[in-house]
Each structure stands twice: as C-alpha cells, then as structure tokens.
C-alpha cells in the first residue's frame, strides 16, 4: 500500500503517462466550473478593472481614459481610509470571535450528547432567515428607548447603551450581531471536518496516556486543519467584504462609523454612479484580500493534506 501511494511521482515512465492522462481528466473535470467562472466572474472583473482606468460614470456616455488618476485620488480620500480602518476593525472583531466560538461548540457538539441535533439546529438558525428581517428585529431589540434590551436593562438598572444609534457603539453592535449570525455556519463546517477524524486516533493516544490538551493539540487540531483553513479564509474574505450586514443595520452610519470599503464602493457606484472610482476602491480591496489570504495559506500550509 505504501508503494502505490508514492508511485505517482516515484516511477518516471509510468508517472509520465499518468500525468498526461490525469491532466486531461483534470481539465475535463474543471471545464464546466472554469467556463462559468470565466464568463460570469472573471470577465466582469476585467471590465471593472478597465473602468477603474477611466472617468467612468454611468451618467457619462463617453468615458475618458485617465490612467491611474482614480488610484491617486483614492489614496488622498479620507472617506476611503476611514472605510478601510472600519473594515479592518470589523474583521479583527468578527473573525476570531466567530471561529473560536464555532470551534468550541463544534467540539462540544461532536460528542454524543443527547439533543445535540437540536442545539446545532438552533445555532444554525440565524443564517437560515433573511438578514434584512433579522436586522429589523435587532434594531428593534437594541432600541435604547422602546426595545426589549434597552427597556429591560433600564429596569434592571444597567447602564444605558445607545448601540446602533451611537458612533461609538455601532461598530460593536454590528460585530456582535455578525458573530451571532455566522458562528453556527462555521460550526457546521468544522463539525463536518471533525466527523472525518477517526476514533482510533484517540484510542491509540489514550493507550499512550495522552491527556485532553495533548489530544486536542496533536490529533484534533492537525486533522481539522483543512476545514479550519477553509472556515478561516472564508470568514476573513467575507469580513473584509462586509456589506449586507452593515447595509441592513446602519447603512454605514452613524457618522460613517460603520462604513466599510464595500459599503463605500456601493455608494460610489450605485448612488453617485461613479463606477470608475468604485471599481478602483474595489480593486485595492481585492489586492489587500489577496495578500492576506496568501499569507494565511502560507502559514497554514494549504498544500499538505495532513
């Protein structure tokens, strides 16, 4: 068995043959996906990049080529820097919170506790319901004057917090609500990963006298790495692109305190109709996300399976 595993690279003549036939198969397997991605995502991305080099407003019928002027303007734009800062704060607030919570509860729910399917269902519920409706419920709950949380905290004598109304608290509220919404989603991903880890490893470790921490450190974590990598990278990308959660909760306010880069992109593109400038901001964000993701892949060694 060991030998078959290495045969692919170890035996030149056969591997040569294998390689070509596998390569052909691989491209055929990827053909449908790559075609769709190329036409409906990659092509529009290049079109957007082309816009970024123009004074491309939807109102203007003849966009003029302006080279990198949009980029130069962007780097002088206080609103963009504010949006970038908000985006990073949001990401740093949301990602660890949601991944750690998801990991902890995935570990608990992986044990054969009675009723775990019910808990898993409840934790997953937030992503099943329309976010626009959830946002209405949350604004309602957090209203410091007539909302449940505001009212009952005043009854209990707790300090009043303005939450979404206040520039100081709105980002915190948005982060907490986002963690609430997404941790169950990540939990399901990690649970799928945990299910793939064999009991036999733990049994073997027990025989060797390993404690819980050692088992977690040397069995669970390494074997969970592919799922964890996915959950982490996906969470970081989604957080850096935060839009829906902000738009339905605060529209970027109050006083731009929750305006993220994508909310800014949306405003510039769809309200001010300056598509060229919006594309520029989006491309810069793309660059940032790309570097961060590459870094994560490097650190977490994505090419190794175990």
């Amino acid at each position: 068995m060991q030998s078959t595993q290495t045969s692919v690279s170890a035996q030149p003549p056969r591997s040569q043959f294998r390689f070509t036939s596998q390569a052909r198969a691989a491209w055929l397997f990827m053909l449908p996906s790559l075609t769709i991605l190329a036409f409906f995502i990659v092509l529009p991305i290049f079109q957007a990049a082309w816009m970024a080099l123009h004074d491309w407003t939807l109102a203007d019928l003849n966009p003029t080529f302006i080279g990198l002027k949009n980029f130069a303007d962007l780097f002088k734009d206080d609103r963009f820097w504010n949006a970038l800062q908000n985006t990073l704060v949001y990401t740093i607030g949301v990602v660890p919170g949601q991944i750690i919570l998801a990991l902890v509860f995935a570990l608990i729910l992986n044990a054969r506790l009675k009723g775990r399917t019910v808990f898993r269902g409840i934790y997953f519920l937030p992503v099943l319901v329309s976010f626009a409706v959830e946002a209405i419920v949350w604004r309602f709950l957090l209203d410091p004057d007539i909302g449940y949380i505001g009212y009952y905290s005043s009854v209990l004598g707790l300090p009043r917090i303005e939450w979404l109304r206040s520039p100081d608290w709105a980002m915190t509220a948005v982060i907490l609500i986002s963690i609430w919404r997404w941790f169950g989603f990540n939990l399901v991903i990690l649970l799928a990963g945990l299910q793939g880890i064999s009991e036999s490893y733990y049994e073997a470790a027990e025989v060797d006298g390993a404690n819980e921490v050692q088992k977690f450190r040397f069995i669970t974590l390494p074997l969970l790495r592919p799922s964890l990598l996915f959950a982490l990278i996906n969470a970081v990308i989604s957080a850096l692109q935060a839009f829906d959660q902000i738009y339905v909760l605060t529209r970027g306010g109050p006083m731009f305190s929750t305006e993220t880069v994508v909310v800014y992109v949306y405003r510039e593109g769809f309200i001010n109709f300056d598509m060229g400038y919006a594309s520029t901001a989006a491309l810069v964000l793309f660059g940032i996300i790309f570097v961060i993701t590459l870094g994560q892949l490097r650190i977490l060694r994505y090419q190794e399976s175990f």
Binding site: R139, P144, D145, I146, E162, L164, R165, S166, P167, P254
Partner: peptide, 18 residues
C-alpha cells in the same frame, strides 16, 4: 431629541408616546 434614529424609529417613538 435622540440622534441616530431612522425615520421609522422616530415614528415609533411618537407612536409609543416617548
């Protein structure tokens, strides 16, 4: 008045006599 309300929330404050 309180700041940071949406139009609907402002209406709700009036509607609850707040």
């Amino acid at each position: 008045l309180a700041l940071g309300l949406s139009g609907v929330e402002a209406d709700n404050l009036f509607q609850t006599s707040k």
